[in-house]
Amino acid sequence: MTSCTNTVGNSGEGSHDFARVRRIVKTDEFSSVFRLRPTQKTAHFVLYTRQNDLPHARLGVVVAKRFAPRAATRNTIKRVTRELFRISALQPVDCVVRLAKAVNSKAGPATTAQLKAELRAELTRLFAAQRVRKAP
């Protein structure tokens, strides 16, 4: 029998879980971040941020079906975004990452290793720029 270590109480600094307290889930929370102008843009993503009063950063991910028609592609994008958010040491901000351009191409499926690497590089740049910008 194994024990589950992914609990809300285990969501301290350096934790590798993605507890509910670190997510933006309510429509009002998404809307309050979207009301502000985009903080940064890359080839495929737009990042919106807003300061919060919590001791940690929170993340919301929006991947529209029109930009990534396959569920496997949308899930891959969300998974990579959450992974990079977890390892980024961000100040207390609410971040919403939105896919703003189609990732499918006629050259190949949208879940190729090359596409994953490109998306990972873009997201890394977004979070790294936030870390530098919000540093005291």
Rank of each mutant, 00 (worst) to 15 (best):
R35F: 14
V96W: 14
D28Q: 15
R20Y: 04
D17C: 03
L84W: 02
R98G: 07
A64P: 12
R79V: 11
S32I: 01
R86M: 11
R23I: 01
V103T: 10
V21R: 11
V93F: 13
N104W: 03
R79D: 03
A72C: 11
P38M: 11
L99W: 06
R66I: 06
R35A: 12
F67I: 03
A57M: 01
F67G: 04
R22P: 01
R66G: 05
A89C: 11
E29S: 13
T27W: 09
I24S: 07
F67Q: 05
R74S: 12
S31L: 08
S31K: 06
F45N: 04
N75Q: 12
F18Q: 01
T49R: 13
V63K: 05
A57F: 03
S88H: 13
G12C: 00
T76E: 09
V25K: 07
V93W: 14
F18E: 04
T39H: 11
L59I: 08
L54V: 01
Q91T: 07
T81F: 09
P55V: 04
V93R: 07
H56A: 05
I87S: 02
T73V: 15
G60R: 03
I24M: 05
S31C: 02
R66M: 10
R20N: 11
R37G: 13
V93Y: 14
T7P: 00
G60M: 07
Q40P: 11
A100H: 08
R37F: 10
G60I: 06
F67T: 03
L99S: 08
V46F: 06
T7L: 03
E29C: 04
V61I: 14
V62T: 14
R86T: 11
Q40V: 09
V63M: 02
F30I: 11
K101D: 05
G14M: 00
R74P: 15
S32H: 07
F30S: 10
D17F: 12
R23T: 05
I77G: 09
G108N: 10
R79W: 10
K78S: 00
L36E: 05
F67D: 05
I77E: 00
V80T: 07
A102Q: 14
A72Q: 13
S32K: 08
V63F: 10
A43S: 11
P55D: 06
N104H: 07
E83A: 00
H16A: 07
G9L: 08
V33G: 01
P69I: 13
H16Y: 09
R23A: 12
K101L: 12
A102E: 14
R50S: 05
L84I: 00
G12H: 04
R20H: 09
K78N: 00
R37L: 14
K101G: 11
P55S: 05
S32M: 11
F85G: 03
K101S: 12
R70A: 14
R82L: 10
T49P: 15
Y48I: 00
C95F: 14
A57R: 02
S11C: 02
D17T: 05
A19G: 09
A68R: 01
E29G: 06
T76H: 15
T42K: 10
F85E: 00
D53K: 13
V21Y: 06
T42P: 03
A43I: 04
R50Y: 12
V63H: 04
L84F: 00
C95L: 03
R22N: 10
F67A: 07
S15Y: 00
A71T: 08
R66W: 03
K65F: 04
R37D: 13
V21I: 13
R35E: 11
